[in-house]
């Protein structure tokens, strides 16, 4: 088997995704007989001309959202060089935290004004809004999470490197992936495009808290109460997004007593995470009086910023970019 070539890159975001890859370093070392990491500016100091010399890359893990022209050019370049493009982390997959800036559009602040014309320093221009990777180029697979959990990232790397060639390794990956995905990678078939390397159900399925009947008497902000351990956070009046969010983290945040904010994106069956949450939360209001319900509703704050915390660019049906916005690609020189 010829060695596979991997590339890793981060656009606008933070280094957490790359650090997660670094953290599996110990296992990653075992990959070296089957794959080489040929392009990774953060750790290897790779340069763009080096990428051209390398020739085509097999799998590219792209993290970070598209916020500047430089991000867009990087995405286009890596796409044209790679066989599989993987959107790694919430920013690349859904726009992530950076896309929060687009809830209330307007002119971007703290941006030097005189940049646009005659810019001798060639600082990349900002895009009109924050895009997820799939808005700019075709994406083959997604590894969601902020940052992705080590297990799924490692499973994704193994699946795409070995493609069924090493059954022993595949058993780790397969045990962590949804059945359809697991079957295709163990039998050496390329997983269907658009597959998400995470669970299928909602976070509630793996959250260890006990869920009883949901009746909402009042809404609390996280600083206002100390939730009982072991009981569903939503039932205690905290806005927890677990029921609209894709499973895979194993209920990391709820285990610590912090409510889920949906970094894995919406669960498979959900149309729009905000709509799902509105439906779920308000159906538990313990009242039939319009005025009482209205009063209860007034205590909620910042629904949009909570429900679409990580997913505004791709999963908020009202805020996804339209075809015109994603166009105007600059030349890729």
């Amino acid at each position: 088997m010829p060695k596979k070539k991997l590339a890793v890159y981060t656009a606008t975001g933070c280094a957490a995704c790359e650090n997660t890859i670094l953290d599996i370093h110990y296992d990653l070392g075992s990959l070296t007989r089957s794959a080489d990491i040929v392009f990774w500016p953060y750790v290897l100091g790779s340069q763009w001309d080096g990428l051209n010399e390398q020739g085509p890359v097999d799998v590219c893990f792209f993290a970070g959202a598209i916020r500047t022209e430089a991000d867009r050019i990087a995405a286009v370049r890596l796409r044209s060089n790679s066989k599989f493009m993987v959107a790694c982390g919430a920013c690349a997959a859904f726009g992530g935290l950076p896309s929060l800036t687009d809830i209330h559009p307007g002119t971007p602040e703290n941006r030097p004004e005189h940049l646009d014309e005659g810019n001798e320093f060639l600082l990349p221009k900002l895009e009109s809004r924050v895009f997820a990777l799939e808005h700019i180029v075709d994406v083959d697979y997604f590894v969601p999470g902020c940052p992705p959990t080590r297990d799924f990232l490692w499973a994704a790397i193994q699946s795409l490197v070995y493609m069924g060639d090493s059954p022993a390794r595949m058993s780790f990956a397969a045990s962590r992936l949804p059945m359809a995905l697991a079957e295709s990678i163990t039998s050496g078939i390329v997983p269907p495009r658009g597959s998400v390397f995470a669970g299928e159900k909602a976070v509630c399925a793996s959250c260890s808290r006990i869920k009883e009947e949901k009746k909402f008497r009042g809404f609390y902000r996280p600083y206002q109460i100390d939730p009982d351990s072991g009981r569903c956070l939503l039932e205690q009046g905290l806005l927890c997004q677990g029921l609209a969010t894709r499973e895979g983290c194993g209920g990391l945040c709820t285990a610590v007593g912090a409510a889920c904010r949906g970094c894995f994106g919406k669960a498979e069956a959900v149309f729009d995470p905000g709509a799902k949450m509105v439906s779920a939360v308000s159906s538990t209001f313990d009242s039939t009086e319009a005025s009482e319900i209205e009063g209860l509703t007034k205590t909620f704050v910042d629904l949009a910023g909570t429900f679409y915390r990580y997913t505004l660019a791709t999963q908020c049906a009202l805020k996804t970019p339209n075809a015109e916005e994603t166009k105007h690609a600059p030349d890729n020189s």
Partner: peptide, 8 residues
């Protein structure tokens, strides 16, 4: 070259 625009 990265601009997160944190305050927004």
């Amino acid at each position: 070259m990265t601009n997160l625009n944190l305050s927004k």
